[in-house]
């Protein structure tokens, strides 16, 4: 397994835990699927969305540009993992 894939899975695990701890406490029994649409499912609101962006910036030391704050990049756990991977790869 490549280093990038390992990192990807770590991001997935960490961000899933972050979202569960901070946004899913209202529904402790719910399972968060990695491809679940966080905004559409009402798991995070607009402020929560910003909080996720800030968490990604702080935790993974990546600079997020305004234009990158989209559902494509932050709309699900999978999307975040892919985004972080791309940023680390320097794209």
């Amino acid at each position: 397994m490549s280093a990038a894939a390992d990192g990807d899975e770590n991001v997935r695990t960490e961000m899933r835990a972050f979202i569960e701890d901070n946004f899913l406490y209202l529904d402790p029994e719910a399972d968060l699927a990695d491809d679940q649409d966080l905004l559409a499912a009402g798991i995070v609101d607009s402020l929560g969305f910003v909080e996720i962006v800030e968490e990604v910036e702080a935790r993974y030391s990546v600079g997020v540009q305004d234009v990158e704050i989209t559902e494509e990049n932050f709309g699900s756990v999978d999307a975040i993992a892919r985004y972080v991977e791309r940023k680390r790869a320097g794209s």
Binding site: L39, V44, D45, S46, F49, V50, D66, I69, F74
Partner: peptide
Amino acid sequence: GGSAARRGPGWARF
């Protein structure tokens, strides 16, 4: 804080 874009798509939709 931040521009509307910074606040993400949920803000706009809301």
